[in-house]
Design a protein around this nucleic acid. Structure first.
Lengths: 215, 215, 215, 215
DNA sequence: ACAGCCGGGACGTCCCGTTGAT
DNA sequence: ATCAACGGGACGTCCCGGCTGT
């Protein structure tokens, strides 16, 4: 739900996910992961210095001490640097773990917060930087928003299962879109203030403000 | 709030707005407007045939019987084809025209619907096509979503004036984001079903579904 | 011999020259001259702010409150802004006015200094700026150097008349090229130091340093 | 000292230099060198047929059987085709090899002649063509003259070391500029006469004509 | 598996010439 | 005479895919 949380699609991204989920990897895989991280680190450094558009793939590759060819092996596209992550599957797992009789909105809220906690614990700084990029770089914000829609579709499916409502019905879609949008604002707000507030509180406030729409 | 409703930024875009608002323009300007439309029409046609990325600026220019240079005079970027429109200022006017004691959400709803009606009356087909592009073409969806954020910021300003709440406070931002997201789903839904439903009804349903977040 | 002193080739340039030579012009012509100056002024301003390459003809035209078309009527090329001036004919007149029995090098020196004095008196600031551009902007320096060669050819002709040596003989060409190069260094040196030294002294020093080639 | 003798700045240019200095290169590098030469050859051919401005990069690439992209990998700019060479470092080496008690002007003369001999031996025809371009094509002459200034700065440094005079003093600058200009005329003269004279003699005559400035 | 090199093509910027309206 | 609009074309930058050698 934070921008750019897309389902894992490539094996390498899958690897990163699994690492999060703690399975210890083979030596080969660990090396690849390291390269992947190195490239991303280099890229983010350059982005924050020069901006996104002004940074070329070649520069990134050079700074990561990798050949451009290799860059493209790890990230099929320059944009993928910023948007590929593994939030969605984590959230799905998290949602299915909620008791079926819990109020829906509560399940959603918890399903979103759990994986966030994990990710923040592991790479809080990088998430903050990513959020700044997301604010400042149109192309990235763009991609991220698209990924958010993907997340929305997945959530519609999950909620449909639970409620029996049609997954592509207007009501569910509108509700999910709204919750995601509000949550995204919370995360953005959090990043803007340097992460000093408790993200969990912000999420709660944002989501409950939907109820105030009767104002 | 439909994707890509941005404030008028260029004089020509301003011209387009004024046309909507009915002021008959000088002969010179009418011609420019025609060219502008011709280019957009050509572009949208090609987009729906070949997809967005696969369509080159040269093709568009050729089909519009214009030189590539001229294309760039009218649209500084290929993406600008899709995202530049004049919804925002219309909506702002519309919102300010609502009585101050009306329930907030109602004012917002009406402020969004009024200009939509005008636009649909004038160019219903193009809006439908635009929505399809918005669904199908990542790059366009991307830009459009970004523009929606801009709309959001404007709305926050308006609501802040009315309510006295801070425009950049979490609550307002979350609420606005949610309403926009839900409305966007409504418009999208409408387009998916070929425009057969009443858009006004859909908007109402989508917005009121936010109240069901207590599910 | 300062960079960019070329023979008058266009009627308008001729006009500027004549003005220097004091003939009062018709009202029509004065207006054109004013425009010409306005454009150049605008251009030089932008050049010193943004650099030469980064300044577009359109910007110059806009700042001079002239249409781009008009710009090109006055200056066939962007580069012509910087290089067109009218030093050569002044110098030729000046040289022919020297007594025939004066030592050659002395005639040359005097022929160069006289017109310089006039120009500096009239537009000292602009000459200084021009010199800076000449230092800093490769394309301009380039053009200027080329013009200097033209000046060289003219001087070869003059010296050939006086000495009876062939105008395209190596000796004369080498001598003239050397004198011009040394003088150019003097002017450049003068500009680098903000014009505080007496240009005349510098020229004398530069030219006489050729004699030290026996070092 | 022929126009356009600039310091080696890219590795490939460095490679070219080293080749001149006889070190046999790896297979990879030889291929690149061949491509580089092929491009230049194609370019010079077209230049002499159609002129410089009228020749497009695409044409050059086509004739060299290379893609335009590749062209720009080898020469960042069309102009770089003409001006990039490796005379300066050769000359520097050559100068430093002169005995310190030799008359200055003599050291300079020898320092210029030695590398010229080498280059002429290796690619006499190309140098001749280059000189013609330098005469006939303003843009090229322009760039070349600029490079000559660079050479001048380097020489000032060298002479300053030897003489103890300040490298940026007017006297040294004027002297160097004059010697270079005279030498340039000699080379030019040589090229105009189809290379039939001994370049070495011409250089001697040109330089010694500086002494006649007392005429 | 990774590095370097190349090709092909899109984009967007700029220059300058031309045309028709004022 | 000036302007606004357009055309046409060059340049140079970048992305990404493929191929070759190690």
């Amino acid at each position: 739900m934070t921008p750019g949380h897309s389902p894992a699609r490539t094996t390498t991204a899958g690897a990163e996910l699994e690492e999060l989920l703690a399975a210890p990897l083979g030596l080969r895989e660990r090396k690849k992961l390291k390269t992947r991280r190195a490239i991303r680190a280099a890229a983010f450094g350059l982005f924050s210095e020069q901006g996104y558009e002004a940074t070329t793939v070649d520069q990134i590759a050079a700074k990561a001490e990798v050949s451009p060819s290799t860059f493209f092996r790890y990230f099929p596209t320059k944009e993928d640097l910023v948007i590929s992550d593994d939030y969605d599957p984590l959230m799905e797992v998290s949602f299915r773990a909620r008791p079926a009789d819990e109020p829906l909105i509560e399940s959603v809220r918890r399903a979103m917060i759990e994986p966030l906690r994990q990710i923040l614990a592991a790479e809080r700084e990088e998430v903050l930087l990513r959020m700044q990029l997301y604010r400042d770089v149109p192309a990235i914000r763009a991609r991220a928003l698209v990924e958010m829609q993907r997340t929305g579709e997945m959530m519609c499916g999950l909620l449909a299962e639970r409620t029996g409502l049609p997954a592509d019905g207007l009501e569910l879609r509108a509700l999910v879109a709204a919750v995601l949008a509000a949550s995204s604002e919370a995360v953005q707000f959090w990043a803007e203030h340097g992460g000093e507030d408790e993200l969990e509180d912000l999420l709660n406030r944002a989501i409950s403000s939907l109820g105030t729409s009767h104002l």
